[in-house]
């Protein structure tokens, strides 16, 4: 299967994380955080999701590149076609 799940998943978590982080930054000290025990949970959890999503995305991309650089069995040509020549 040539779609690495980590790429779309990482992308989604990064975007959601980014949205939450930015929203958390703009709402610092807001009264809405009384309900979450005083924690700016949007900011904290946004950063956690951003880190997780980013890691997933990079891991997925790296393994995709490795797969593309792998030569076709019995030849020296890379499988992806656009690996080394440029």
């Amino acid at each position: 299967m040539s779609l690495d799940l980590r790429i779309p998943m990482g992308l989604m978590f990064s975007i959601v994380g980014l949205i939450l982080t930015l929203y958390g930054l703009f709402t610092r000290g807001s009264a809405v955080y009384e309900r979450s025990a005083g924690l700016n949970i949007n900011l904290i959890w946004g950063i956690v999701m951003l880190v997780f999503g980013g890691t997933m995305f990079l891991l997925g991309r790296a393994s995709d590149r490795r797969a593309a650089a792998k030569p076709i069995e019995g030849t020296n040509r890379p499988l992806g076609g656009h690996g080394h020549e440029h």
Partner: peptide, 11 residues
């Protein structure tokens, strides 16, 4: 609904 402020509530 009790603990999550808007933003993370969507999540």
């Amino acid at each position: 609904l009790h603990y999550f402020p808007t933003g993370i509530l969507g999540l």
